[in-house]
Computed example of a mutant assay.
Amino acid sequence: SKIAFAGKTLTVSTAEDFDFSQVEVVLFAAGASVSQALAPAAAEAGAVVVDLSPAYRYEADIPLVVADVNDEMLAQAREQNLVACADASTVQLLRALKPLTELGPLQDVVVTQFQAASATGKSGVDQLAQQSVRLLNGLSPSEAAQAQIAFNVLPVSGQIQENGFTSEELKLMLETRRILADQPLSIQVTTVRVPVFYGYGQSVTVRSMQGLSAAQCHALWEGNDDISVQDSDDPQAMSPVAMVEGEPVMRLSRVREEMEAGGALSYFSVADNVRWGAALNAVKIVEKLLKDYL
């Protein structure tokens, strides 16, 4: 079949029938089961697989990468012909934290994440839309036994594990610890599902061994083209909804130092989890692979 994209007509065929030896890099963004079924064949054919699913994120011999954070791990790409992209929430957190390591080792990070319905893909977006329509028409939110996300806030995102954390919280904690393995880091995460279609918000408090000042952090963040520090007090500009329009960037706001002068810093970040956290990170990884490692 054919589809129109960016002014061109592209041919779409089944991945199972594709000869992966024809290409240098393959992007997988169809979920863990598809990656597990097809990525080994693509890697065996000589293509480097860049996988956006969680299928290979915890494999010790496969690099887990956030572009502009640990690009040096791409040097290992040819060992297994596979690179795992970190989750969008990890990308959002680490793109803000990594520059701060220039001021000294990071010690403690506490994150409250406000997660959009699109965290679960199209099904989550459809569920929020359908429940919203039903509630606005005086009906129950769902005919099925679903948690109400429309006009609601859910303190559980993912499956609750034996230690009390959810799978979404552990994912962010484990990926952060793996990528920032050189930091003496303690991280605590609470993830809340909110009735927003796209865009994650993260309320973060970070403590460094050497202390952090707002001015220093501003200077480090502003050196990145796709990170914007908001000086405005307009709450709309700080919201996930503002991320849907315009170029994909991460916006940082509410930057403030600890009142007790203990050296900790708090900030709020928002980013489009689909376009910025997932897609742009993967594209950057591919560009770096082609430029420096293949």
Results as ranks from 00 to 15, higher is better:
residue 89 S to L: 14
residue 207 R to H: 12
residue 25 V to D: 02
residue 280 L to P: 07
residue 31 G to S: 06
residue 276 W to V: 11
residue 16 E to T: 13
residue 95 R to W: 07
residue 204 V to C: 05
residue 106 L to A: 00
residue 79 E to L: 07
residue 163 N to Y: 03
residue 34 V to Y: 11
residue 201 G to H: 03
residue 151 F to N: 09
residue 212 L to F: 08
residue 134 R to E: 10
residue 170 L to T: 13
residue 162 E to P: 02
residue 162 E to C: 00
residue 59 E to S: 11
residue 7 G to K: 15
residue 226 D to S: 05
residue 247 E to T: 01
residue 145 A to W: 10
residue 111 V to P: 11
residue 148 Q to A: 06
residue 36 Q to N: 06
residue 160 I to A: 06
residue 105 P to G: 01
residue 160 I to K: 14
residue 96 A to M: 12
residue 100 L to H: 00
residue 72 E to L: 09
residue 15 A to P: 07
residue 105 P to F: 01
residue 185 L to W: 01
residue 150 A to R: 09
residue 124 G to L: 15
residue 90 T to M: 05
residue 33 S to G: 04
residue 200 Y to A: 09
residue 179 I to W: 02
residue 218 H to A: 01
residue 195 P to V: 09
residue 141 P to E: 08
residue 228 S to L: 10
residue 31 G to V: 06
residue 276 W to G: 07
residue 23 V to E: 02
residue 279 A to E: 15
residue 80 Q to S: 04
residue 82 L to N: 01
residue 228 S to V: 09
residue 70 N to I: 07
residue 60 A to T: 12
residue 238 M to D: 11
residue 18 F to E: 13
residue 254 R to M: 08
residue 241 V to L: 15
residue 44 E to T: 14
residue 238 M to R: 14
residue 277 G to V: 15
residue 255 V to S: 01
residue 204 V to Q: 06
residue 12 V to E: 08
residue 173 M to Q: 13
residue 187 I to K: 03
residue 61 D to R: 12
residue 107 Q to M: 03
residue 150 A to E: 03
residue 143 E to H: 10
residue 1 S to D: 05
residue 106 L to S: 00
residue 79 E to C: 00
residue 293 Y to A: 08
residue 189 V to D: 07
residue 76 Q to C: 02
residue 4 A to M: 13
residue 256 R to H: 07
residue 182 D to K: 04
residue 158 G to H: 12
residue 79 E to G: 00
residue 47 A to H: 09
residue 154 L to M: 13
residue 16 E to W: 08
residue 42 A to I: 09
residue 239 S to K: 12
residue 119 A to M: 04
residue 193 R to H: 04
residue 149 I to H: 00
residue 114 F to P: 00
residue 186 S to I: 08
residue 109 V to G: 07
residue 119 A to H: 13
residue 215 A to G: 07
residue 2 K to S: 13
residue 283 V to F: 13
residue 207 R to W: 03
residue 21 S to Q: 07
residue 246 G to Q: 02
residue 141 P to A: 12
residue 278 A to G: 04
residue 202 Q to N: 15
residue 40 P to R: 12
residue 56 Y to I: 01
